[in-house]
Simulated assay, not measured.
Amino acid sequence: MTMSKTRSEGSLPVVSLPLPVDVTAPAVARQAVRATLGGLGLDGPEVDDVLLATSELVTNAFEHGEKPDRLEVEYSDGRLTLRVFDSGTSRPKLKEPSPMAARSRGLQLVHALSDDWGHELCSGGKYVWAVFSLARADASA
C-alpha cells in the first residue's frame, strides 16, 4: 500500500491512495484510513463510523462507478473529509432501500454517519465525499 501526501491543509496533509480495481479495494481503503487517523491522533467510536463510511463509499465506487481510482483523506480544523474517486459519471442516488433487499444501504449509511456528503464531477469521472467532525486526542491538552 503506497500512500502519498499530496498537499497540506495547515500542518495536516491530504493523503492520496490509489485503489485496486478489485474486491480488495474496501479493505485496502479501510486499512489506509485507520492508519491515517491513528497517525493524526484520532481514535474513539467516531473512527468506526469513518471506517464504515470508507467501506461503503469504496464499495459503491467499485459496484456502481466504472472503475475505482483513488481515495483522499483530508483533516483540518476538526473536520475529516473522505473523497473516493472513480471513472464513472453517473451521479450517486440516495434511495430508500426495500426492507427485503440485502443490499443498497451504502449511501444511507454514509448519510447517517457523516455530517454531510455529496459528489462532484471532475476530470476523468467523479468523486463522492463525506465529512466528519473528529477531535484530536491532544486538542484538549
Rank of each mutant, 00 (worst) to 15 (best):
L71Q: 13
V84L: 08
P26Q: 05
S76M: 10
R30M: 14
D115P: 05
G10L: 04
V58K: 13
G125F: 01
L121W: 06
L57Y: 01
M1T: 11
A141M: 08
P45I: 06
V73S: 10
W129V: 00
R105S: 09
V110L: 08
D116C: 02
D49M: 11
T6R: 05
D116L: 03
D138R: 04
A61C: 15
P26A: 06
G44A: 01
E9C: 13
M1G: 10
V110P: 07
A25T: 11
S55Q: 14
S55V: 09
V128C: 08
H119C: 08
L94I: 09
E46N: 02
T89Y: 14
G118C: 11
D138W: 02
K67I: 04
L82A: 03
T54S: 11
D48H: 15
E72R: 04
R83N: 00
A53E: 03
R103W: 03
T81K: 03
G39A: 08
S76T: 13
K93G: 02
M100F: 12
Y75I: 07
L51D: 15
A101S: 12
M100D: 13
S98F: 00
T89E: 15
E66L: 06
K126W: 02
E66M: 06
C122F: 00
D77M: 02
V23T: 09
M1H: 07
W129G: 01
Y127F: 01
G78S: 00
V28P: 08
H119F: 05
R136H: 05
V28L: 06
S90A: 14
S104I: 03
W117P: 00
S55F: 10
W129E: 03
D86L: 09
S98L: 00
Q31T: 14
T89G: 07
Y75F: 14
F132Q: 04
D49C: 06
L94H: 06
P99G: 06
G39E: 14
K67C: 04
A27T: 09
L80V: 08
V15D: 10
Q108I: 12
G118P: 12
P68G: 08
M1I: 09
A141W: 02
G65V: 10
E66T: 07
F132I: 14
R30S: 08
P97H: 07
G39W: 03
L113S: 09
E120N: 10
R83S: 00
T2F: 11
G38T: 14
D69Q: 14
G10N: 09
T89P: 04
L121P: 01
V131A: 07
A25F: 06
G41A: 08
V131D: 12
A112E: 15
T59R: 04
V21D: 15
L57C: 07
E96H: 08
L37N: 12
G41N: 10
A139I: 08
V50H: 08
P26K: 04
D86Y: 05
A61E: 15
M100E: 14
K5A: 13
D43F: 02
E66N: 13
L94S: 02
A61Y: 13
K67T: 12
L94T: 06
E72C: 09
S76I: 12
Y127A: 00
G78H: 01
S4L: 13
T59F: 03
A29E: 05
C122T: 09
R34K: 15
S90N: 11
A112H: 15
T6S: 08
L17A: 12
L113I: 13
V15K: 10
K93E: 14
L42F: 04
Y127W: 04
S123A: 05
